[in-house]
């Protein structure tokens, strides 16, 4: 199946890159065998997802996408792509995760710095193999020409967009799974129809790479409004995207009983007057995950505002505090009627 020019244009528009069409037409195809066979290719270039890796210019079948409300990772810029093998398509499942064919890949590159100063740090892959999804982390070289498999993860000193010098953690392969898992299986978490724009979904349908734009699509608010938009939907979207992959039944933190999914409506389950279970010093001396009207007495915000292991939430994937996310959650708790 031919990709339409529209998607290529979207790629250009999204990243403002100067895309020479000749690059795509003359570029080697994506290496389907590397995606689908067992084993862990040592180099990101083995997959041939990009025509110009350092510029993150996608090859044929590789489509960029963006999320309404993204997961925050120390303020990293994230370049997200999906790859679908020739002749395959995704199917929608209501507002939930798009269902991907075997052979698909989800690609996310983490970058820090603006313009010519931008450095690619790591690229995380989710490969849909016949026996399920495999998650692999790749770490970019200093020359920005390729990235190397980093099964055990690693650390790297850098300065965040907020100006904080941190020791940034690249997750190890198992840590990929600690977020990307449900009932013990690796799954994608980002590309849910509710968190994707209707425009993008429609383009995919037109291109023949998605069956339909489902009801419930594009229902999460856009994060660009976070400073002034209504607090409740923004906070719930933020918690869904940043926390609910663990904090839901079958997730990594199911034993806490805290369920932060967008669709959860039980106040106790989302933390209101919910007492801590295994929080230890993470409780910070507070009695409830959320005490309505009292953000400074709410464990949820206390843990979001910490970087100390044993207190900080999320437990992995951050080395600094997301002040914007915290501000939204604070506004939301403040708005709640005290009992």
């Amino acid at each position: 199946m031919r990709r339409t020019a529209g998607l290529l244009l979207l790629a250009c528009a999204t990243f403002g890159a100067v895309l020479a069409r000749a690059d795509v037409i003359g570029s080697p195809p994506v290496n389907d065998a590397a995606i689908q066979s067992a084993g862990f290719p040592l180099k990101l270039s083995d997959f041939a997802f990009f025509t110009q890796p350092g510029l993150q210019l996608p090859g044929v079948g590789v489509t960029p996408y963006a999320l309404n409300t993204p997961l925050w990772s120390d303020g990293a810029e994230k370049l997200r792509f999906i790859y679908l093998p020739e002749g395959t398509r995704m199917t929608a499942d209501g507002g939930g995760l798009l269902q991907f064919p075997v052979g698909a890949a989800i690609i996310k590159t983490f970058a820090f710095g603006e313009g010519p100063e931008r450095r690619l740090i790591e690229t995380r892959l989710l490969l849909h193999r016949a026996d399920g999804w495999t998650a692999l982390p790749y770490r970019w070289n200093a020359e920005q020409t390729d990235a190397t498999l980093a099964l055990a993860g690693g650390r790297m000193d850098l300065v965040t967009p907020a100006g904080e010098a941190i020791s940034y953690a690249i997750p190890n392969k198992n840590q990929c799974k600690s977020c990307h898992s449900k009932d013990g299986e690796v799954i994608p978490i980002g590309p849910k129809a509710r968190n994707l724009s209707a425009e993008w979904l429609e383009q995919m349908v037109v291109a023949g790479t998605l069956d339909t734009v489902p009801a419930g699509a594009d229902s999460l608010p856009g994060w660009s409004d976070h400073a002034t938009g209504p607090a409740a939907p923004l906070a719930r979207a933020y918690l869904d995207v940043n926390c609910a992959h663990c904090h839901q039944p079958g997730g990594g933190a199911s034993n806490s009983g805290l369920d932060l999914r967008w669709e959860q409506s039980d106040p106790h389950a989302i933390g209101i007057f919910k007492r801590p279970v295994a929080a230890g010093r993470g409780a910070g001396g507070h009695e409830f995950s959320i005490l309505p009207g009292a953000p400074d007495q709410s464990i949820l915000l206390y843990r979001m505002d910490s970087v100390e292991p044993g207190i900080a939430m999320p437990e992995i994937g951050k080395s600094s505090v997301d002040h914007e996310g915290g501000a939204v959650v604070r506004r939301w708790i403040l708005e709640m009627e005290p009992r």
Partner: peptide, 29 residues
């Protein structure tokens, strides 16, 4: 000197045996 994660060692697989070692001063569990 732990900088990240909620525990020293996390096991999420079945039929695992842990024996004859020590864990000291984890920041979380």
């Amino acid at each position: 000197t732990q900088q990240g994660a909620g525990e020293g060692l996390l096991v999420t697989a079945d039929n695992v045996t842990l024996r004859d070692f020590a864990v000291e001063n984890p920041k979380g569990d």
